[in-house]
Structures are given as C-alpha cells and as structure tokens.
Amino acid sequence: MTDCPNGLMRDLLPEHALGLLPAAEAARVAQHLAECATCRADLVLLKQVRAAQSLGVPRMDVAAIASALPSAPATSRPAQRIASHRWFGGHAWQYAAAAGLVLVVGGGIVWRAMPTGEEARLADSSRVVVAPVESAGVREPLPADDGISFGGGLSDLSVDDLQALLGQMDSVRTLPSSDPESVTPVIAMNEGGKTL
C-alpha cells in the first residue's frame, strides 16, 4: 500500500469525488487519474467511505422536523410607514437636526462602546449579514455596518425621546455575532417602533 507522491492531487480527490471542483481543476485531476493507479484506487475508496458513512444513519423526517420550528416573523409594521410619511410634514428641519444629533453623537457612542473585534468586523462592510426582520415586511440582507436601526421614525421622537434613545444606544455593546458558541438569540427586538 503506497501513497501517490502528488500531494496536491491526493488533496483534491475528495472534492473531485463529490464534483465540487471548478472545471479546470477537475480536468487536471481527471488527467492525473488516467495516469495514476494509486489515485484511481483512492477515488474508489472515497466513494465507498461516503456510502459506508450513510449506513445506519436514519432517514430524517423533514416535515416532522419543520413542524417544530418557530413561526416565521410577522410581516407588517404599520407604525413605521405612517411615521415615514410624517417626515415630510411641516417640521422637517427639526427632524433633520434630530437626525444629525443621533448620527453624530449616537454613532460615536456606539463606536466607542464596541469591543476591538467588533470594530474590525464593522470595518469590513463588504460582508453580508442576514439581519433579523423583526416585524418589518421587506428587509433584505444588510451590510454589516448597519448595526442599529430605529423603526418608529425620528418624527415620533421628542427631545426626551432622543435622550432616552441615546441612553439606550450607550447600553448597546454587541451586534449579531457569528460566534459558534452563541446558539441563543443575540438581537434584542421589542414590540414597539424603536428597535435597537
């Protein structure tokens, strides 16, 4: 029993057996297989291993498993839509000032509150995060730096509300995590319009 001296080919065989290689690489492996009896034997063995590993594994009942899953989130959030119309009302300048305050001060607070690892993650805005939809109907995956949103619209906020919002922002220390340790929800969602 010997190993093929071509380590790269040995390495690629499992993916080749599963048809996962890009066409050019698959062609290279196929060419090697035509010349190498050891790799041909290994390929046969890999297919046997795959079949053997399914032995004794019970067939999963997809419908039964799916029936135990939590319900899909609700689909409407009328309060937000109403608020967004009011934005264009007669007091737009007040709202614009409020927005500026939230973005500048709030953004600074959140950034400061964030651990170093989170800063690095947020800096990588090319990454796509599948964000929770809460009660909104049409929320697509968001860039990773969209860590905070508020559903009620600024038009709903008085100065007191803004103070409260800033206070809440100060307490936000984590964003959705990909940490495999975390198998519990990490996103706080409340029933009201203001979601943090």
Partner: peptide, 8 residues
C-alpha cells in the same frame, strides 16, 4: 431562534 447571528 438565533438566525440573526448567522453570518454568510
């Protein structure tokens, strides 16, 4: 229950 923590 924690789908929000899945990153693609």
């Amino acid at each position: 229950n924690s789908i929000g923590s899945f990153r693609a």
